[in-house]
Amino acid sequence: MKIEKKDVEYIAELARLEVSEYEKEMFTEQLSHILNYVKVLEELNTEDISPTFHVFPIKNVFRSDQVKESLSREEVLKNAPGQEKGFFKVPRVIE
């Protein structure tokens, strides 16, 4: 699998990463290298194999619908880089 620079740009955009020209080239090469390595998986016929998303078959884990105390607003906002009037403050969203 050959990754191209435009793939790296697309992935970076999806992942909200800003990548420099240098990084674009580096990632293009390294990701190609790694994807080339993982190509070995194609040797295995997995058509009739079901995937393992969970290693053990635990099912139906629920909580009861009972209210527990929330955090204080002070604690909620304690780590916030920006806040105003009890809200988290974020730079403008360009629509």
Partner: peptide, 27 residues
């Protein structure tokens, strides 16, 4: 119309002061 949120025990009450029904999970 459940009492609590889908994945944590915070109340689902509508119209209260901002960020008062929040816990580590829903945050």
């Amino acid at each position: 119309r459940t009492e609590t949120k889908i994945f944590c025990p915070c109340p689902t009450t509508f119209g209260d002061e901002p960020n008062t029904h929040v816990c580590p999970v829903c945050l």
